[in-house]
Design a protein around this nucleic acid. Structure first.
Lengths: 222, 222
DNA sequence: TAGATTGTTAATCGATTAACAATC
DNA sequence: TAGATTGTTAATCGATTAACAATC
């Protein structure tokens, strides 16, 4: 794994380099961030570990433990300052800055993604939308104009894009994944249900709402 | 938690009732199912724990261990039969049957969901699409026609709907969540970023692609 | 037989939780 | 002061992994 020069690992006063977060801790911190981001939007100033627990279904002791490993962010009897905690967690996850992403597919799903602020809220900026359909190229989608796939490589290079989002039909997904990889993208967010084959240095995250539902349903049924 | 009479817990030959799955096991089994479903589509007949590991990023020993807890599903030197394993896991997760869901919101996102087979592949059938916009009511979306919110309660009762999917703007989400709960829905899949307040017996699952990306990005950066 | 892959053991490691003193 | 909530301990529990015999 490489290290991004723009996001150097934090250094502690004793000069030690912190451990890489475990999968579990990183996943939970991300979920806290989701709730905190929303709480901030709603004008909430402080939040207790119990409230965070209600929304994330993570045990409140676990939450305090996760956080206290990085510093004393809370105030006894009061809770955590929402805004301060957001920036602390962003620092821990090294995602405090802006990240540029490209979106492939200007159909219903692509337009829904481009039109929402779900990525923007977390520092992801959609810098370009691509579609293979000549009829769509040049038409506006939100603040962007749909571009031709031929521009992909230059956009990825110029805008320093690390993440590509695939909102295309299953039949087109693997081919476009290959194009994204060739253009230099390192993380692919796949909204189709295809199993993408990519080189080991590339991470694929496949959205699977139905699988999430199966999981929720199991705990409802038992 | 209640038990669904249509999905009784499996009984073992010794008469004991199996333990409820731990969160981790249920989550992993769901992910195996996602890959297996897709592998089946691609015509794959057998799959090894190593191949499953490549796609799910779960250690192959862990996978064999998870599966062997429920029976000897594999064949040494060969792997697992894809189709047989799909039905075994569905049985374990008690989601072997069909489940009816309702979809709220006939915008870009709602249409993208209704038009994909991502839910159908896992036994979820969209039995109705609702929208509050009078202009959209009566228009076709895939095989369905958009219905008025007033029909919600009767549809939920008649079709025995347990899951409601919210593909609506943030501003409308809480109000419609209340309606879904009042109509008798027990699991809400929330595509907006709002923190929904629901009674404790109702489960909310919020889709958060940006948070998933943050998580992937962390492991890319470190 | 030779190669591949499962099922299972044994040992370790990290996650989880209840409880409570500290303190706002 | 009284109430609330954090930070931390100590004990338990489950997850993870390497290794390998069993066996297809």
């Amino acid at each position: 794994m490489s290290t991004d020069p723009l996001n150097p690992p934090p250094t502690f006063t004793d000069g030690s380099t912190p451990e890489r977060l475990s999968l579990g801790v990183a996943a939970r911190l991300s979920r806290y961030l989701q709730v905190l981001t929303q709480a901030k939007k709603m004008g909430k100033e402080t939040i207790s570990s119990q409230e965070l627990s209600d929304y994330t279904h993570v045990n409140s002791t676990q939450i305090r433990r996760d956080l206290s490993g990085f510093g004393k962010f809370g105030k006894r009897g009061v809770g955590y300052n929402v805004e301060a905690l957001v920036s602390q967690i962003r620092k821990i996850l090294r995602t405090a800055g802006q990240n540029n992403i490209v979106l492939f597919g200007a159909g219903h799903l692509g337009r829904a993604i481009a039109g929402s602020d779900i990525f923007a809220d977390h520092g992801f900026r959609v810098v370009a939308i691509f579609d293979s359909d000549p009829e769509k190229i040049g038409t506006p989608v939100g603040p962007q104009t749909v571009r031709a796939p031929a521009d992909l490589t230059s956009v990825v290079e110029e805008e320093d894009v690390v993440v590509g989002v695939l909102a295309v039909p299953s039949s087109a997904a693997q081919g476009l994944a290959d194009d994204l990889v060739a253009a230099g993208v390192r993380i692919i967010f796949n909204y189709s249900d295809v199993l993408l084959d990519v080189p080991p240095e590339v991470t694929v995250h496949t959205s699977s709402p139905a699988v999430d539902l199966l999981y929720a349903l199991y705990f409802y049924l038992t």
